[in-house]
Nucleic acid binder design. Structure first.
Lengths: 100, 100
DNA sequence: TTGGTATATCGGGAAATTCCGATATACCTT
DNA sequence: AAGGTATATCGGAATTTCCCGATATACCAA
């Protein structure tokens, strides 16, 4: 993954907030009946609700974060759940230590 | 410093390269007669030469990196020398560990 | 003081990003 | 099959970023 694309993904207030929310889903989202936060993540609708932005914008932002390998997704029925991608975040730490 | 501004500063190929070059100036720049890399940094002209972009662009890029507290500058005569800001880079690591 | 060199700032055209509403797709229920 | 819900994709107006050349400023040397 291109380093610049990772930092572009992070250079937006809402996208940074989403990553923060997904770090502690139980504090930031209401309980989910059918999926646990740790294994599956949080569904798009909840993230959109919390952000206050439009559905299309949030869907696009999530895909930008996913292309940067900062989050990953799971489809369950009609819902898509997103959660943090720990490997990608670890890689980002390495970039900062080794390249900058 | 605003987190978004830090990531915006990093979301450009040339600016990332500059930070990389400044990590190991002795490998990336010719010897300087009047200033040592470790204490003072590298002057704007050398960075511009290496980047291949215009003088005005590099001057602006350096000021963007400085506003994000990723580099710092020292004026010596008619030259401005820039070097890495270790505290700022450390702060960036913390952001990634604590906020994302 | 005059001229030369290094850097910063200004103004702007082109390209990218932000965020939206409309629409398409996928899946579920009946 | 038909209608409903969740998400993705499309098209676009407004804003921001990229990068330039021209110009301003700061300092030095003669």
């Amino acid at each position: 993954m291109d380093q610049v694309e990772i930092f572009k993904a992070l250079s937006n207030k809402t996208r940074l907030q989403i990553l923060g929310w997904l770090k502690e889903p139980e504090l930031n989202f209401p309980e989910q009946p059918n999926a646990d936060f740790e294994n599956v993540g949080v569904c798009v609708g909840q993230i959109q609700l919390k952000s206050g932005l439009s559905q299309s914008t949030i869907s696009e932002y999530l895909s930008i974060l996913q292309r940067a390998e900062l989050i990953s997704s799971t489809r369950v029925g009609q819902w898509t759940y997103y959660k943090r991608n720990k490997e990608g975040l670890e890689k980002l730490s390495e970039i900062i230590h080794k390249a900058l």
